[in-house]
């Protein structure tokens, strides 16, 4: 895929995944990578930024003698997700318009 995803959209994707369930770092990265190509070194800054802006919270759960850090979306995160979703709809609409869909213009 030649088109690079912007950080706002990536925020939206991560928030969208966390909307359904809490994930830990590795599983979340896998989940995102199912759909788009992002590097592990991209995921960490995203999570860090989202947490810093209180869009998600973290909690630790013991797993096989160590801790797993889970990420959970906050109420603020849900609001932000809706905003990104709307922005994306507008953006998608205008790009689709320019790319044409092979209709109109006759």
């Amino acid at each position: 895929m030649a088109i690079q995803i912007s950080s706002e959209l990536l925020d939206g994707c991560v928030l969208g995944i966390l909307l359904h369930d809490d994930y830990y770092g590795y599983s979340l990265t896998q989940k995102v990578q199912e759909s788009i190509s992002v590097s592990e070194s991209t995921m960490y800054p995203v999570l860090r930024r989202l947490k810093k802006n209180d869009l998600l919270s973290t909690y630790d759960e013991p797993y096989q003698g160590r801790n797993r850090r889970y990420y959970k979306i906050t109420a603020e995160g849900k609001r932000q997700f809706e905003m990104i979703k709307q922005d994306w709809q507008v953006f998608k609409g205008s790009i689709d318009k320019m790319l044409g869909d092979g209709v109109d213009h006759e």
Binding site: G25, Y26, T29, E40, S41, L47, R66, R69
Partner: peptide, 26 residues
């Protein structure tokens, strides 16, 4: 925080050998 994140990541992904880690993360 960075180190915690990546060590957890490598453990969860089952990357044990040094070369496995390099293949995953560089």
């Amino acid at each position: 925080e960075v180190v915690d994140f990546y060590s957890e990541y490598l453990q969860d992904g089952g990357f044990v050998r040094f070369s496995d880690c390099v293949a995953e993360l560089g």
